[in-house]
Design a protein around this nucleic acid. Structure first.
Lengths: 136, 136
DNA sequence: GGTTATTCATTTGTATACTAATAAACAACC
DNA sequence: GGTTGTTTATTAGTATACAAATGAATAACC
């Protein structure tokens, strides 16, 4: 059987990611990227935490989370403060503005998820997500 | 139902992509990235074509394919030549070295695909790939 | 208590990925 | 045949993503 790029999981994953990004950007109101969105939602879930821990919990390495935090701070959604008990750490937490948009983010995220999964019906979505999770 | 980042298709797709990238790099012998690999395999499938067309056939915009072509050329896998019939175009084609590694690339790609899909059994892989393709 | 190892954050460098703007060449059309 | 519109390629700017190196602070351990 000949090797066909269009049948390879890596290539198709990249295409699916691209499509998701397009859908995300089309609906985006707050000017957030998918990555910034993920970090912000995660802080909402976790509460305040160190910058590196936030990176680990959102699957971003230290260099990536650094940039994401910088931009979320510049946009006013988070605030940074020194950790009283550990001088190495920078504590990341939601700003008042960040708190205010969390519900909006969730509604937005649900819309993006819905449209991204729209080619699949309900039982298919469950099967698909279960299998996709096993590939992480 | 509360919104949970870990259940969102966009976030899980990103994680799956990351894992695939790690597997790809672990096995990579020729120093290619997944994107460079895709472009090179595609040229092998299509034969010579313009730089922009190659980008379209590998889902890369003009800026991205430009960089990929530059690096594939620097690594000696492709060659560039002017299009005799269209002065705008740059024709991209495999170099002798590129021709030589195509079979190796296919074997490598199959190994990466196999390991990436290893958490799924054979019938699951088929179902999964079919559904994933519908999300592109 | 002092050595060793680990963790945290930053920085540098390389590689996608997309937008937008530009210039040159080509195509369509009246 | 000249205007209009499209295509091709380049460039600049922003944002992930990862590797690797660094310095500061903390933890582990004998």
């Amino acid at each position: 059987m000949a090797y066909r790029l269009d049948e390879q999981i890596g290539y198709i994953l990249r295409l699916a990611n691209q499509r998701h990004g397009l859908i995300f950007n089309k609906h985006s109101e707050l000017g957030l990227t998918p990555t910034q969105f993920a970090a912000l939602v995660r802080i909402g879930e976790m509460g305040a935490c160190s910058q590196n821990l936030l990176g680990r919990r959102t699957a971003m390495d230290v260099a990536t989370i650094k940039g994401v935090v910088t931009r979320l701070k510049a946009k006013g959604f988070i605030q940074l403060s020194p950790d009283p008990g550990d001088k190495r750490r920078t504590v990341v937490s939601l700003s008042a503005q960040g708190q205010e948009v969390i519900d909006q983010l969730h509604a937005f995220g649900e819309k993006v998820t819905e449209e991204t999964l729209s080619p699949l019906n309900e039982p298919e979505r469950k099967v698909f997500l279960d299998m996709l999770k096993r590939l992480t």
